[in-house]
């Protein structure tokens, strides 16, 4: 891609993103300032930044400072996500190789898979209340699906020559699984981590919108209840930024791990 672009167009590409961002912000500010869109419906960027600074140190009007919301969300996300990895990856790997594991787990998995994770929210509130456990459960339910699928497919894509090679040396099924299938599936498994994270984050916000007393989704809901459009937008932006932040962290960890099993 970059090879076919001239030096001039590369320089333009460096400037254009800032230009477009700035113009969006300017237009956004203008449509509200000129009264084209009433301020009761849409906050201006400046109001959002003001609220951001205010919320850094003030708990009102929603009950907690911004950092608490962010940490609540991250805590819930990572709990559910970690559980999804710990259960989903081994399960998918085993299902990919052992007929018994596939036979037992697949029907249950296929039955649960088409249910959107957010559909679990009412049940989760019922069972676990509005605290961390309920949300971790919903995130777990949405994160585990890509974990299982990627691990399963990863094992299934193992080059059969390696398996035959191990067999002729007399390797047992377990040895083949451990020595051949698992390392061969790892790139696919790592690929699933980001997918699972995206799924988890989406489900988290949905869960918090409905039932929570802190968290970024809750902040958005409070903005609606208190008729504060600036708080709604701040919540949305923070969800995006925090998601990106977690994504980068996971990506770093992943790169470390992949470097450990380099090929």
């Amino acid at each position: 891609m970059s090879d076919i672009q001239s030096a001039g167009s590369k320089r333009i590409l460096k400037i254009l993103p800032y230009l477009s961002l700035l113009s969006v912000l300017a237009i956004w500010e203008l449509v509200v300032d000129t009264g084209l869109v009433p301020n009761t419906l849409l906050a201006t960027p400046i109001q959002v930044i003001e609220l951001f600074i205010y919320k850094l140190s003030h708990a009102d009007p929603d009950g907690s400072v911004l950092l608490v919301h962010v940490l609540t969300s991250i805590g819930e996300a990572l709990t559910g996500y970690t559980l999804a990895l710990l259960i989903g990856i081994p399960l998918g790997l085993l299902m990919g190789w052992f007929v018994v594991a596939e036979g037992l787990a697949r029907p249950i998995f296929e039955m649960i898979r088409p249910i959107p994770p957010v559909a679990w929210i009412p049940l989760a509130i019922f069972w676990f209340g509005v605290g961390l456990t309920g949300k971790a459960f919903i995130i777990w339910a949405s994160g585990i699906v890509p974990c299982v699928i990627n691990s399963f497919v990863g094992v299934r894509m193992t080059n059969p020559v390696y398996i035959r090679m191990a067999r002729t040396y007399g390797a047992s099924d377990w040895e083949i699984f451990k020595n051949i299938c698992v390392p061969s599936a790892l790139p696919m498994v790592f690929g699933g981590l980001q997918v699972a994270l995206a799924a988890s984050w989406t489900a988290l916000v949905a869960a918090e919108l409905i039932a929570a007393d802190t968290g970024l989704g809750f902040l958005i809901t409070m903005g609606r209840r208190l008729l504060m459009p600036d708080m709604i937008v701040l919540g949305m932006l923070m969800v995006g930024l925090t998601g990106v932040f977690i994504g980068i962290v996971i990506d770093r960890v992943e790169k470390r791990l992949v470097a450990g099993v380099r090929r």
Partner: peptide
Amino acid sequence: ADPKKHNLSFVFQEPSCMPW
């Protein structure tokens, strides 16, 4: 013949080095 008892080896036509 039994790969678990006998000492067999197989060099395949396809590349069979494990990349990891």
